[in-house]
Amino acid sequence: MPSDTKARIQEVARELFAEQGVQNTSLRQISERLGITKPALYYHFSSRDDLVRSIVRPMVDDLERFVDERGPGGDPRRLLDDYFELLWRHRQVIVMIVRELATLSQLDLGVRMFEWRRKLIAMLLGPEVTQAQHIRATVALGGMSDCAVEYAHLPLEEVQPTAVEAAADALGL
């Protein structure tokens, strides 16, 4: 469990990274907004990259756990619902990543995200997927991610039902 100071640093950094991008946010800006010294910030995080990793890691862990703990079969709509809730929970991090795609390569997220998507598609549609089904699934899952980002200012209960229904329609469920 992170300390209160560490959690506050991550919260402020997440906000600034989402607002102005990782590369445009300095540790000085973060420490000033928090009202702490830069050495106090360095006590908790050795670098900006270390801080970024600490912010992205919970999303990565949740996504890996999500795709690894679910097997094939099961209710596809429930899977879409649960997946959307996971995306929604990490929408601020997704905004941060989308805003600055260099973060993907810096943290080796691009390859991992495609692997997660392949696993999700297999869970939704089985191991034998046609190219057309794969394209539909890419639109469905990518569209859900986009909705979590684009409509992050709205309440979950206004976004989730429509996003999941549209994904299910794209998948032909």
Rank of each mutant, 00 (worst) to 15 (best):
147 C>A: 15
71 G>K: 14
50 D>Y: 07
70 R>P: 06
57 R>E: 13
66 F>R: 03
58 P>C: 05
138 T>C: 00
139 V>R: 04
85 E>D: 08
62 D>I: 13
52 V>W: 01
75 D>I: 15
103 T>Q: 04
124 L>M: 10
111 V>Y: 13
104 L>N: 02
86 L>W: 02
63 L>N: 07
89 R>P: 12
60 V>F: 09
94 I>C: 04
144 M>K: 09
136 R>F: 00
76 P>T: 08
63 L>H: 13
109 L>T: 00
127 P>G: 14
129 V>I: 12
88 W>K: 13
70 R>G: 10
84 F>I: 12
125 L>M: 14
129 V>Y: 04
102 A>Y: 03
74 G>V: 15
84 F>P: 11
107 L>Y: 03
126 G>L: 14
94 I>N: 05
43 Y>M: 12
148 A>R: 07
122 A>F: 07
53 R>T: 13
104 L>G: 01
150 E>V: 08
67 V>H: 10
51 L>S: 08
61 D>I: 11
132 A>D: 14
65 R>N: 11
115 E>I: 00
123 M>P: 05
120 L>K: 08
84 F>E: 12
62 D>E: 13
109 L>Y: 02
135 I>T: 12
59 M>L: 14
87 L>A: 07
89 R>A: 15
60 V>Y: 06
92 Q>D: 12
138 T>E: 00
117 R>M: 07
130 T>E: 02
78 R>D: 09
71 G>N: 12
129 V>G: 06
90 H>F: 09
46 S>G: 03
150 E>I: 07
80 L>Q: 12
79 L>Q: 10
126 G>Q: 14
96 M>T: 04
107 L>F: 04
76 P>Q: 14
86 L>P: 00
119 K>V: 04
140 A>N: 01
89 R>M: 09
102 A>G: 06
52 V>P: 01
55 I>Y: 12
97 I>G: 01
144 M>C: 09
43 Y>C: 06
139 V>A: 08
94 I>E: 07
96 M>K: 03
99 R>T: 03
103 T>W: 04
145 S>L: 15
147 C>P: 01
82 D>F: 03
142 G>Q: 15
104 L>R: 01
44 H>N: 09
104 L>T: 02
90 H>K: 15
58 P>I: 11
63 L>T: 07
120 L>T: 06
62 D>K: 12
95 V>T: 07
89 R>K: 13
142 G>E: 13
46 S>A: 09
75 D>S: 08
103 T>F: 05
